[in-house]
Computed example of a mutant assay.
Amino acid sequence: MADSDRLSAPGCWLACTSFARTRKGILLFAEIILCLVILICFSASAGAQAYSSLSVVEMILAAVFFVIYMCDLHNRIQFINWPWSDFFRALIAAILFLITSIVALVERGNHSKIIAGVLGLIGMCLFGYDAYFTFPFRQQTHTAAPTDPADGPV
């Protein structure tokens, strides 16, 4: 193995893991973990396996967006509008988790189904915050107008 390969590996690892320390990285990682816990709770519940498909799909989508942002692919692949895609993913997930959690809590199953319903409401809040945080118009930067006169200082 050449010295350049050995030296570039820590830099690549540092570049990839630096995203995990950002607010977006922490949100996506928390979404992945929460979806996994909800999946386990729904799978443990008798007769509630139909609800687990939402957490599987959202866990996979959150992992895909985590990898895309971590590897900086959102700047390399320009034909997809990543902020809008991420916004709609999080918004739809929040709405679907709200509906699924309410249905699971109203049916009054066993304890794992109730826990999954409550965690789904927490997931709804997490995905809703992610949708609010990634709203594309909110991220636009505003440049301040110059305050000095155009002809120079007086």
Rank of each mutant, 00 (worst) to 15 (best):
G117V: 10
L121N: 01
G117T: 11
S43P: 00
T22K: 12
V57Y: 05
F88K: 01
G11C: 06
I102K: 01
A94Y: 02
D3E: 15
L14I: 05
A94K: 04
G123W: 01
I77H: 07
S53A: 12
H74P: 00
F66N: 01
A46G: 05
I80R: 00
L27A: 09
F66G: 01
M59F: 10
F66S: 06
D130A: 11
W84Q: 08
A44S: 12
I115H: 00
A9Y: 12
L96T: 11
C12L: 15
L119P: 03
V64W: 05
V154H: 04
K113A: 15
Q139F: 00
G128N: 04
D130P: 00
L36A: 15
T134H: 14
G128Q: 05
R138H: 14
L96R: 11
R23I: 13
S52V: 06
D86M: 15
S53Y: 13
A62S: 15
F19K: 03
D3Y: 08
H142Q: 10
L61M: 14
T147A: 11
A44E: 12
C125F: 13
R21Y: 12
D86Q: 13
F88V: 15
F127H: 13
I33W: 10
V64E: 04
S45I: 02
D5M: 02
P149W: 05
L28K: 10
I68L: 14
I115K: 01
A30H: 01
Q49M: 09
W82N: 03
S101W: 07
K113L: 12
N75M: 10
G11H: 09
Y132R: 04
C16I: 08
G47P: 13
I38P: 01
Y129I: 03
F29P: 00
L119I: 04
A150D: 08
G120Y: 05
F127C: 03
I32W: 05
L91Q: 11
D3T: 13
T147L: 12
E58H: 07
K24R: 11
R89M: 10
F133H: 09
R6G: 01
F65P: 03
R138V: 09
F88C: 07
R6F: 14
V57S: 13
H142V: 15
K113W: 02
F137Q: 11
N75D: 14
I80V: 15
L28W: 04
P136E: 09
V118R: 03
M59I: 00
C16R: 08
T141W: 03
G109H: 07
A48N: 14
R138Y: 14
Y69K: 08
L54F: 10
T141D: 06
L98E: 04
I33D: 02
C35F: 02
A20R: 09
C41V: 02
P146N: 12
V64F: 13
I122K: 00
A62H: 02
I40N: 04
W13M: 11
P10W: 06
A62Y: 02
G117S: 11
I38L: 07
V37Y: 00
R23E: 12
Y129T: 04
G120I: 05
A94G: 05
V57G: 06
V103R: 06
D151M: 11
A93C: 07
H74S: 14
A150E: 13
T17L: 07
